[in-house]
Amino acid sequence: MSHAYAYPTSHFETTPLVDLNARPERERLSRSALKGFFQLAAAWQLRDDDARELLGGLSSSSFYEWKKNHERVLEVDRITRISYLLGIYKALHILYGDKLADEWIRLPNTNAIFRGTTPLAYMLGGGLLAMQTVRRLLDARRGGL
């Protein structure tokens, strides 16, 4: 006699994961990712050097070309970085009014994660993993933690 274990039925629908290793998916997402990133950079009043570093150390010439022309296919790393940053942007605008949401990354922060520096300095110094940490912190705050 075999006993099969089954998970309870759920009304929660999961969305399929996007395979960023698949070029067609990156082609589909890249233009809107870049457009969103440059809008975020303007809202946050990022210096070009900081924006380039958040993108993973992009050269000046590439940065200005990307700023003028969003028609390109981004690598997995850059799409992931932009995804975290857009998630941070969205969470901030849910948690705070627009003015504070856009200033938050440039304000010194007493949270132990930031050690008195700004969230921007933390992300510039820690790269992708720091962006992930900030995103998780804000998502937890949105969830009431």
Score class of each variant (00 low, 15 high):
His70Ser: 15
Pro108Ser: 09
Leu137Cys: 04
Arg142Ile: 04
Tyr89Cys: 10
Leu128Cys: 00
Arg106Phe: 01
Asp50Met: 09
Ala33Val: 00
Leu138Ser: 01
Met123Val: 01
Met1Val: 02
Pro8Ile: 06
Met123Thr: 04
Gly57Tyr: 09
Ser30Leu: 09
Phe38Glu: 00
Glu65Asn: 13
Leu86Ile: 12
Arg31Asp: 02
Asn111Lys: 10
Leu86Gly: 07
Thr133Met: 13
Asp48Pro: 11
Arg142Cys: 07
Asp50Pro: 10
Glu13Met: 14
Asp49Phe: 05
Gly116Ala: 05
Ala121Gln: 15
Arg72Leu: 14
Ile79Thr: 09
Ser30Asp: 02
Ala43Arg: 14
Ser32Tyr: 05
Arg135Glu: 11
Ala4Ser: 15
Gly144Cys: 01
Phe37Asp: 01
Ala41Val: 03
Ile82Gly: 06
Lys99Thr: 12
Ala91Gly: 02
Glu71Ile: 07
Ala140Ile: 03
Thr15Lys: 11
Asp98His: 12
Leu17Phe: 10
Leu92Gln: 06
Thr9Leu: 13
Ser30Arg: 07
Gly127Arg: 07
Phe38Tyr: 03
Gly87Pro: 02
Thr14Glu: 13
Glu103Val: 05
Ala121Glu: 15
Ala4Ile: 11
Arg141Met: 15
Val134Ser: 03
Ile113Phe: 07
Ile88Glu: 06
Asp48His: 14
Leu17Gln: 13
Val134Asn: 09
Tyr64Glu: 04
Leu40Gln: 04
Ser61Trp: 08
Ile82Met: 08
Ala91Tyr: 04
Trp104Gly: 02
Leu92Asn: 06
Glu103Leu: 13
Ser2Gly: 10
Ala43Leu: 12
Asp50Trp: 12
Phe114Asn: 05
Leu120Trp: 03
Thr9Asp: 15
Thr14Ser: 11
Gly143Lys: 10
Ser60Asp: 13
Arg135Gly: 01
Gly125Ile: 05
Met131Ile: 00
Asp139Tyr: 09
Tyr84Asn: 10
Lys90Phe: 04
Phe37Val: 01
Ala43Pro: 04
His3Cys: 07
Ala6Met: 12
Ile82Trp: 06
Gln39Asn: 13
Arg115Lys: 15
Glu13Arg: 12
Ala112Ile: 06
Phe38Trp: 02
Arg141Gln: 15
Leu107Ala: 05
Arg136Cys: 07
Ala6Gly: 07
Ile105Phe: 05
Ala91Ser: 14
Arg78Ser: 11
Phe38Cys: 05
Glu53Val: 10
Arg136Phe: 02
Leu95Val: 00
Ala130Arg: 11
Arg142Pro: 04
Leu34Phe: 03
Leu137Trp: 10
Val73Leu: 08
Phe37Thr: 03
Val76Gly: 10
Pro108Trp: 07
Pro16Thr: 12
Gln39Pro: 03
Ala33Thr: 02
Arg52Phe: 09
Trp104Val: 00
Asp48Val: 03
Gln132Leu: 12
Asn111Cys: 03
Asp49Glu: 14
Lys90Asn: 13
Leu120Thr: 01
Phe12Asn: 07
Leu85Gln: 08
Lys68Ile: 01
Ala43Thr: 09
Asp50Tyr: 11
Arg28Met: 09
Gln39Asp: 14
